[in-house]
């Protein structure tokens, strides 16, 4: 490490790159490389974004997206963690169910979307179902393996400390599984957002995805709005991811991976 690698210089370099990307975008638009009928200029997009931010329709769309995502995540994750824990604790159940779950995990979640659309139409339920269904399988698997992944030394230690039953579960099993569940949750949050947007785009449920689609269909004049919505979706993604990473850091501060991160940051 030398001075170039630390502190303000790094921040400056990052800001510089962001500025360069934005400037490059604008330059390409002005020079006519980017056709304004399909890719509006940076300034037009930003102006539109500013205008949209004062529009209540936009906030309604954001709310719809966040609501569908949050509900689906809540239902899917609660079920996955509960069922995963129960399955993980029983060897017979685990061995029996794992082939089914492993198979269903490889099935593209999106396959179920048309069915959900037929059953529920362009509704919040459809969205919530897709998200819940999509996050359930990977998180259930994570939980099962997490519950079963108690370090052998830890298992021996628990035995010599005579930890049994519920106390063993809370003292040893759950903390051992926590890193697996946390990783699963972080992935679930990101996947859930993607599925929410897809459900809105394909299924026509209200939200940012639908806003993007309608603004595209409204013709070239509305294109800056499309890009403004896309940027906003990205911001939502950043917020969601950051929130989950922060939560993980807090809850798993004792875990090796987090310790390493802390050491790196120091």
């Amino acid at each position: 490490m030398n001075a170039v690698d630390t502190g303000w210089f790094r921040t400056l370099a990052r800001l510089g790159v962001i500025a360069a990307v934005l400037a490059g975008w604008q330059l390409l638009s002005v020079a006519g490389v980017l056709d304004s009928s399909s890719f509006p200029s940076m300034t037009a997009t930003m102006a539109e974004l500013g205008r949209q931010l004062t529009d209540s329709d936009l906030w309604l769309a954001v709310w719809e997206t966040v609501r569908g995502w949050g509900l689906g995540l809540l239902i899917g994750c609660s079920l996955a963690i509960t069922i995963g824990t129960l399955l993980g604790l029983n060897r017979f159940a685990y061995l029996s169910v794992i082939p089914v779950i492993e198979f269903l995990k490889t099935v593209p979640v999106i396959a179920i979307l048309p069915l959900a659309i037929v059953v529920w139409g362009a509704t919040l339920e459809m969205k919530v179902f897709l998200v819940a269904f999509g996050v359930f399988w990977p998180l259930a698997i994570q939980t099962i393996y997490g519950v079963r992944a108690v370090d052998p030394v830890v298992r021996d230690t628990a035995a010599v400390l005579r930890l049994r039953g519920f106390r063993k579960f809370t003292t040893v099993t759950l903390p051992s599984a926590a890193p697996f569940i946390a990783t699963g949750l972080r992935v679930a949050a990101a996947v859930g957002l993607i599925l929410t947007i897809i459900a809105e785009l394909v299924g026509g449920a209200r939200g940012l995805g639908l806003s993007i689609l309608t603004s595209v269909n409204a013709g070239p004049d509305r294109l800056p709005a499309t890009y403004a919505f896309i940027l906003l979706t990205g911001v939502t993604g950043v917020l969601v991811t950051t929130a989950f990473v922060a939560l993980e850091q807090r809850l798993l501060h004792w875990h090796e991976s987090q310790r390493n991160l802390a050491a790196k940051a120091a």
Partner: peptide
């Protein structure tokens, strides 16, 4: 972080 699906309409437009 942008869900790629969100880019889809724009890419179709382009």
């Amino acid at each position: 972080v942008i869900p790629t699906a969100a880019l889809l309409p724009a890419i179709v437009a382009i």
